[in-house]
Design a protein around this nucleic acid. Structure first.
Lengths: 103, 103
DNA sequence: CGTGTAAGGAATTCTGACACG
DNA sequence: CGTGTAAGGAATTCTGACACG
């Protein structure tokens, strides 16, 4: 559960580019600005998760609104807090659905 | 819902190899034998889903038991039938958990 | 049958930098 | 500040084939 598919870093930057519509340059730059944190393969290739892809889409939207990367970084920090509530909801949902399946 | 993260084809063969412990040769061969069906990027690079990775792990286990690819293909077909029931359960679970969250 | 390997080519990714602004 | 691009190198992936068995 801790490392669901959503958070596994397995997508190369080229695919991420296709998925998000962002250029390789943009994706690398947002990492430089600490908005995303891909992992690396042994030889240095970046690997992203689906969660990263979602974050990048959010970033793209903010950027279109003219929001600067510095501000976006602040907002992303807040979202971390929110995701705790999300987690609680998810767990509750899991328990409920399993309970009903057992009947 | 139809294309959850589990079924999105976004993983390159090198990563799949790391994830499964199989050689590139083996992964390509299992495709040739119709056990897995990766998609392709515009220029022909194979892309796999997490579901494909799971299937490959199953295949690896069967192979260790000496099961031939032909037989494994048969078994995989059966599993497809099972997954319909799984789908029903999942949908039921979804509805239940949403129902409870709304309360 | 299932898998390793060498072969040559094509496409990917990486970094650091210059450019514009 | 944010992004494009040319640059050179290193690593990836592809296919078809020969090998062993």
């Amino acid at each position: 559960m801790a490392d669901s598919y959503k958070n596994k870093k397995v997508i190369s930057i080229g695919i991420v580019s296709e998925l998000t519509g962002l250029s390789l340059r943009q994706i690398r730059y947002y990492e430089e600005r600490k908005l995303i944190f891909p992992e690396r393969t042994e030889r240095g290739t970046r690997k992203y998760s689906f969660a990263d892809v979602e974050t990048l889409v959010d970033i793209a939207n903010k950027r279109e609104e003219g929001v600067q990367t510095f501000e976006i970084r602040q907002e992303l920090k807040k979202q971390k807090g929110q995701s705790r509530d999300e987690l609680k909801k998810m767990i509750r949902g899991q328990i409920n659905s399993q309970f009903h399946l057992r009947k």
